[in-house]
Write a protein that binds this DNA or RNA. Structure first.
Lengths: 341, 341
DNA sequence: TTTATTTACGAAACCGGTTTCGTAGAAAAC
DNA sequence: GTTTTCTACGAAACCGGTTTCGTAAATAAA
């Protein structure tokens, strides 16, 4: 590792211009205390010498870092990828930096990440919690330190702050109803958590649709995937094998969709003739699957953007407090061939 | 915005224990200068009071931030998503933080991002350059400041540093040859850049395969997508419409695959009977497209991991200098139904 | 026993900015 | 003409750690 170059400091600029350090600092940040003439002189030198302030010194002095922390369960999911896109967009526009952390659905990791945030590393946090997360003490601890937090997608109702979500309940209800209308008399719900906000709401929507349409809810229609992909797959296969015609499946997240296709292929079941499928999914390829997958498409980019915007607002506005509110950006049901036209 | 809580500082710990500030600092970082007994006392208090050091103060004093900057052209691409995963994995293991930036394929943005890095915000950089990037002065400038940089996937040969890539040339050659063997006598190459390292190499591999198999290279077999998706699509459609049987397509990146499927659908051309298709892609859904897409699957996670590991090594080891080397992690050709079995 | 090391710690400078507060001179108000 | 208010700037404390260097006491070597 090469030695770091002796970097340009504000002190050197000050000496060069015969001004004080504080004047330079203020001039650079366009303070009203400094005359236009001086600002111009300073900026000229800054340009000429390619001076770039040390962000850590700034952060230390000003106790804010222009950095937001983003905590995700995973990134290889179209939803989260698009959400990052939205977040980064807003961040870039507003001069914020984005620190990204993956909890890998693991509560302990999530705790560790938030713990670190208590150091003041980030000005604010955007989080979509891990599926394992049921307590919120780690979040409370962070909020106690006055770090603004905005939830997106996977929220915790018990925490008093802003949450950007989609209409999980309603879209699951709609999707389920769609399946029913297309002739399904038994509908499987693919889940991967018993506690996650989005799953609970989607499940509730599913139940509501059943109820509205005189279908009985049955526990054995709920398939909850765990951490053992192979085992889960076999479970699904078994379930599908025993399924008669008129079965529909609602997959509550994107990654559960492909196993269904796999199982149908393996069992030589045809979609949608034998089984109709709808999945929550933001994948572009949904339209080109065999057959094209009917999806509930979430406004992922929008959600990321909204969450980031709100956080930024909370950070910039002196008298803006994050309210305990839910902002709902609706999803859309995109009907394709995996359900009967 | 609530006021920040008066945070615990090392000074307060020092007073509490009747030790000096420097002793506390050293004890926390497990310095050999401090006795085990003292360390224990310090750590006990740290635990008890939940003391977390201010990272910006540490960074300022120690001139390193335990942060790496990751610059990507985009994130909604399986390759980059998986690469991030690999990067984050290594980062988490080694106590590094990951700042993420998207260039959105835009050179000016990329320049701006790297410029900011000159501030010392990050200890090292992982970058996959934008498609617009043909100069490397912004990268040179950063390297002049002794910031270690590791390229991954989209590299710049002219820059003297480590590069983690896949065997672009070879896998494109292989894929093209595969198409030829399956009966294609004309092969289109879908591109989206004339300058990007990966594209150039893939194109070269494509050419080599043509040459080896007595097929003529023709400029009008190269389709270069630009920024106007609609226009590009029409171009592709036009090209396919005029295509006779025995045409194959090699898509040089993931996002170019779906438009092909779209066009074939619109033109009622059947894959693989009328047109055979291979694409570079890391998408899980490739296997479930209609028909399943033959892909060149890149070791994205591995590439991210390798790049990050190397960077970390360069940062941790005092006498480890990043060499001007290419580390090649090979891709695999996964044959599916979009080419004739 | 004397000298040379080692061990364990503290004082103080330092990292590179920001912020507070004080003030000279100019402008405005009376 | 005097007092008041701005304006534009500087000195110095501060942010919260790290690092260097000096040293007393303990231990080892001679």
């Amino acid at each position: 590792m090469k030695e770091k170059i002796n970097n340009l400091t504000i002190k050197m600029l000050a000496k060069e211009l015969g001004l004080s350090v504080s004047t330079i600092s203020k001039a650079i940040r366009d303070s009203h205390e400094i005359s236009d003439g001086t600002k111009e002189r300073v900026n000229a030198l800054v340009q000429k010498l390619n001076y770039i302030p040390n962000p850590y010194a700034s952060s230390l002095g000003s106790r804010n870092s222009k950095t937001i922390g983003v905590v995700l369960p995973e990134v290889t999911d179209s939803f989260f990828a698009q959400a990052i896109n939205g977040i980064e967009c807003v961040a870039q526009e507003n001069g914020y930096h984005v620190l990204i952390y993956l909890s890998h659905e693991n509560f302990e990791k999530e705790k560790k990440i938030l713990k670190d945030f208590e150091s003041g590393r980030v000005d604010g946090v955007l989080i979509s919690v891990a599926k394992e997360t049921i307590q919120h003490c780690h979040i409370d601890a962070l909020m106690d330190k006055a770090v603004p937090i905005v939830f997106f997608d996977r929220v915790m109702d018990e925490v008093t702050t802003a949450k950007i979500i989609t209409n999980d309940y309603e879209s699951a209800r709609l999707a389920t109803e769609h399946l029913i209308k297309k002739g399904c008399n038994r509908i499987l719900f693919l889940s991967f958590s018993h506690t996650l906000s989005i799953i609970c709401k989607r499940l509730a929507g599913y139940k509501k649709a059943l109820l509205d349409n005189q279908l009985k809810y049955a526990d054995n229609n709920i398939l909850t995937f765990g951490n053992d992909a192979k085992k889960d797959y076999l479970l699904l296969q078994k379930k599908l094998k025993s399924a008669s015609k008129g079965v529909g499946i609602l997959a509550s997240v994107e990654k559960l969709a492909l196993p269904i296709y796999q199982a149908c292929e393996d069992l030589q079941l045809s979609i949608p003739e034998d089984i109709q499928v709808i999945s929550f999914s933001n994948s572009d390829s949904a339209a080109f699957l065999h057959p094209p997958l009917t999806t509930i498409t979430q406004p992922a980019f929008e959600i990321g953007k909204t969450a980031a915007s709100l956080l930024v607002k909370a950070l910039e506005r002196r008298n803006f407090e994050l309210r305990n509110e839910e902002i709902i950006v609706p999803s859309t049901l995109v009907v394709r061939k995996s359900t009967i036209g």
